[in-house]
Write a protein that binds this DNA or RNA. Structure first.
Lengths: 229, 229
DNA sequence: ATTATTAGTGTATAGACAACACTAAGTCAA
DNA sequence: TTGACTTAGTGTTGTCTATACACTAATAAT
């Protein structure tokens, strides 16, 4: 259904930087383009904003359609509006970043017929359009935000060990942390609850599993508490 | 020059939350709408993104056209993309906030034929569209950002006293600060340079004037220094 | 010269942060 | 079953940082 307007309009798209964390790296989800321009290149999942959906709904739909990912932490990152960022025509894109529990999705992405794959962020090079810049912006935001908002948990399964959590911060912040100080600090904040379970199937002493208690966190926040790693 | 597209497109606009600071309050610049919808209501300056200009260029142009403000600190805030945020048609807007040296512009805005005026942010009520939400988001961002980035100086004249600077933080953060601790901290950061001038035309002891030395700040930043109030 | 107003200055205390190394628990293989 | 290996888990001390706090100095106005 074609549409005519009094003045020309930029096209409006969304793009998603979906982060995941495995044992080694921080990963980003990319899809291979099967159309020109940048055919065969890897790109961020994304697409046009439809006239009857909100911008955020559009990202969620595209993520679902292109990668099978749904119900994840999603936050708007930045709107990229340079005139020449797409060689075909004027396209403005609203970029979001998503935090994905890799354990839930690494299989799906692999079995999906689409050409989607997780890349270590340090190896995501030669992307289509200005997607490398968008990725860099997302990474910078993640690094900044993870230190003063408890969003890291979105990358972990519901129950996790303190060592996993520490590794998460070390990976994202690219800096080593002291084990004792880390534990003191994070447990002192009093929003992690120890479950009565421990790790299974590990070839060494099993660690206690913890959960992030969002309600406790919100109550603390109301009382002026400020998260910080 | 009308344009036709295969699929309908949202219109794309920009809006600017221009902050200024005077002796009493943090102010925001609003313009009175002379067209429906919301005729007669106060609104943020803004307008359509043209096909041949970047999104940031569009805000700068609209700010200049509607309020006479140019060459100010400007940073993208958030893109508002709800389906029903404009009653006429689907409009997505990219909001920016600007920091304005009020001394430069309070006269201009007053003499300009347009109906533009500075309001204390606490008195900016009943705005058009979702502009109150945008203002709230801008305020929240300003409060957060002013604490760990030296952007406050954008609201002051090139030379200012430490008391003015302290008042700035107290106004924005809505909290009193200790004079001695504030001075110790801000001077200790070592990017303010004392000029050899002092205040003029004040009915009490004149205070020394300082300048923010951007180069010094950038050098410090490279060496891992982090600003924080 | 007295009053009023804002500028400008130092110290002591408490709390936060950083550095640091050993024992405990469990798996695995000889 | 014992010994080797791997990761879990735990406190103390010194250093630095943040906070609380009150008086004198300079200038203008009367």
């Amino acid at each position: 259904m074609p549409a005519t307007y009094e003045y020309p309009r930029p096209a409006l798209t969304v793009d998603a930087v979906a982060f995941g964390l495995d044992e080694e790296d921080l990963k980003v989800l990319l899809i291979r383009r099967d159309l020109e321009p940048f055919q065969g290149k890897w790109a961020l999942p994304g697409g046009f904003v439809r006239i009857e959906e909100s911008v955020e709904d559009a990202v969620r739909r595209e993520l679902q359609e292109e990668t099978g990912i749904a119900q994840v932490f999603l936050e708007q990152l930045y709107t990229f509006g340079a005139v020449d960022r797409d060689p075909r025509e004027r396209i403005v894109t609203v970029a979001y970043y998503a935090l994905v529990k890799l354990s839930d999705y690494r299989i799906k992405a692999a079995t999906d017929a689409r050409d989607a794959a997780w890349f270590a962020v340090s190896e995501a090079r030669g992307l289509a359009f200005d997607h490398e810049r968008i990725l860099a912006a997302a990474l910078e935001r993640l690094k900044g935000k993870v230190r003063y908002q408890p969003i890291g948990f979105e990358l972990l399964p519901p129950q996790f060990t303190l060592s996993q959590l520490q590794r998460l911060y070390e990976t994202i912040l690219e800096t080593p942390l002291d084990k004792r100080n880390f534990r003191k600090k994070i447990l002192g904040m009093d929003f992690l609850v120890a479950s009565d379970e421990v790790q299974k199937d590990v070839a060494h002493r099993a660690a206690r599993l913890y959960r992030f208690d969002r309600k406790k966190y919100q109550q603390l926040q109301k009382r002026g508490f400020n998260f910080e790693i």
